[in-house]
Amino acid sequence: LQLFIKTLTGKTSTVEMEPSDTIENLKAKIQDKEGIPPDQQRLIFAGKQLEDGRTLSDYNIQKESTLHLVL
């Protein structure tokens, strides 16, 4: 599924993920695209901070969801 990652600067990146992927996997993919180390990334979806060990489906993240990346 395609996700949009929006940064505080207003920049939006697109990443392709599976519902079974963990937040950790997602942060690794963001690191590949943006060069931001996972330990500096905080991802927010629906007002919640996402935890590394959980999966996208745990948070009911659907295709074309927008996640907010806070550093």
Rank of each mutant, 00 (worst) to 15 (best):
Q41G: 03
G53F: 11
K63L: 06
T14W: 10
V70Q: 08
L71Y: 08
T9S: 14
Q40F: 10
H68L: 15
S13K: 07
Q31D: 04
A28C: 06
T66V: 14
L8V: 13
L1S: 04
E34V: 14
I5R: 00
S13I: 15
S65V: 08
Q49G: 06
A28M: 12
P38S: 14
R54V: 05
S65M: 08
E34A: 10
D58M: 05
F45C: 02
A46N: 15
T14I: 14
N25R: 14
S20W: 15
L50K: 00
T7I: 12
L1M: 13
E51T: 06
D58E: 11
T55S: 09
D32F: 11
A46Y: 09
K29Q: 06
I61V: 07
L56C: 00
L8T: 13
S57Y: 08
G53S: 12
I23L: 04
T14R: 11
D32I: 13
Q2Y: 12
S20I: 05
Q40K: 12
D39Q: 12
R54W: 11
A28G: 08
G35N: 07
D58W: 13
M17C: 11
I30R: 00
L1N: 04
R42N: 11
D58A: 05
I36G: 02
E16F: 15
N60S: 09
G53P: 06
E16R: 10
T9F: 13
N25V: 12
V70W: 11
T22I: 04
H68I: 15
Y59S: 03
F45G: 02
L71W: 10
E24H: 11
K33C: 06
L26T: 02
K29H: 07
F4E: 05
K27C: 01
D52Q: 05
E51N: 06
Q49A: 11
E34Y: 15
S57T: 08
G35P: 02
P19N: 07
L56V: 05
E64D: 15
L43R: 00
S57F: 09
L50P: 00
M17N: 02
L8G: 11
S20M: 10
P37L: 06
K33I: 15
K27M: 04
I30H: 00
Q40H: 13
N25E: 12
G35S: 05
L26Y: 00
P38Y: 12
G35D: 05
L69G: 01
I36D: 02
V70H: 09
P37E: 06
K63Y: 11
E18G: 08
Q31R: 13
L67K: 01
G35I: 02
S13T: 15
D32P: 02
T66D: 03
Q41S: 04
V70G: 05
L3N: 02
E51R: 07
L50V: 04
E64W: 15
L50R: 00
Q49D: 13
L43N: 00
V15N: 01
M17V: 13
K6S: 07
R42W: 09
I36N: 02
G47M: 03
K6C: 11
T55R: 11
D58N: 05
E16A: 09
D21K: 04
T12R: 06
Q62W: 08
K11G: 10
L67V: 13
S13D: 05
T7L: 15
L1F: 13
G10F: 03
E16N: 11
V70R: 09
V15H: 05
A28F: 11
N25A: 14
P37G: 05
I30K: 00
Q62S: 12
E18Q: 13
P38N: 06
Q31S: 12
L3C: 02
L3P: 00
S57C: 04
L56T: 01
I30Y: 03
K6Y: 07
F45V: 03
V15A: 03
D32R: 12
I61G: 01
D52E: 09
L26W: 00
D32G: 08
T66P: 02
T14Y: 11
L43S: 00
I36V: 10
L43H: 01
S65L: 04
A46V: 06
I44N: 05
I30G: 00
P37N: 06
D52N: 11
K6G: 03
I5V: 07
P37K: 06
T66C: 05
Q40R: 13
E18P: 04
S13M: 15
I30A: 01
A46E: 14
F4S: 07
L56G: 01
K29Y: 07
G47T: 04
V15Q: 03
S57H: 09
I30V: 04
T66W: 08
E24A: 15
D39E: 13
P38F: 12
D52V: 07
N60R: 06
P19E: 08
I61Q: 02
I61D: 02
S57M: 12
K33T: 12
K48V: 15
L50M: 06
F45S: 03
R54T: 06
T14P: 05
G47D: 06
E16G: 07
Q40Y: 10
L43I: 13
L67F: 04
Q62A: 10
D52K: 04
P38G: 08
K11I: 12
L43Q: 01
N25F: 12
L69S: 01
G10P: 02
Y59P: 01
E51S: 07
K29E: 04
G10S: 03
V15P: 00
F4T: 12
Y59I: 03
I61F: 05
N25Q: 15
G53W: 13
G10L: 03
T7G: 11
L50G: 00
T22D: 03
T14E: 07
F4H: 11
T66G: 03
K6H: 13
R42M: 13
K63S: 15
K29T: 06
T12Q: 07
T22F: 08
Q31E: 10
I36H: 09
D58L: 02
Q41A: 05
L43E: 00
G53C: 06
E24K: 12
E18Y: 14
K63M: 13
L67R: 01
F45P: 01
L71N: 07
I5P: 00
Q31K: 10
P38L: 12
Q41H: 03
K33L: 15
Q49C: 10
L50H: 00
D39K: 12
D32H: 11
T22N: 04
F4M: 08
G35R: 05
E16L: 14
G10R: 04
L3F: 09
S57L: 12
I30E: 00
P37R: 09
Q2F: 12
K11A: 10
K48Y: 08
L43M: 03
A28E: 09
E16V: 13
K27V: 02
E64S: 12
K11Q: 10
Q2S: 10
K29G: 02
T22R: 07
L71D: 07
L69V: 06
G47K: 04
D52C: 05
L69R: 01
T22G: 03
Q2G: 04
L1G: 04
T14Q: 10
L50Y: 00
Q31C: 09
Q2A: 07
T14H: 08
Q41P: 02
N25K: 15
L43D: 00
G10E: 04
E34P: 02
L71H: 07
P38H: 11
H68S: 08
T22P: 03
K33H: 07
T7K: 07
T9Y: 13
Q31V: 04
S13A: 11
E34R: 07
S65A: 12
L3R: 01
K63R: 11
P19M: 09
T7E: 06
Y59V: 03
K33N: 09
L26P: 00
L69C: 01
N60D: 09
E24Q: 12
K48L: 12
E64G: 15
K48P: 01
Y59A: 02
D21T: 05
A46I: 06
M17P: 01
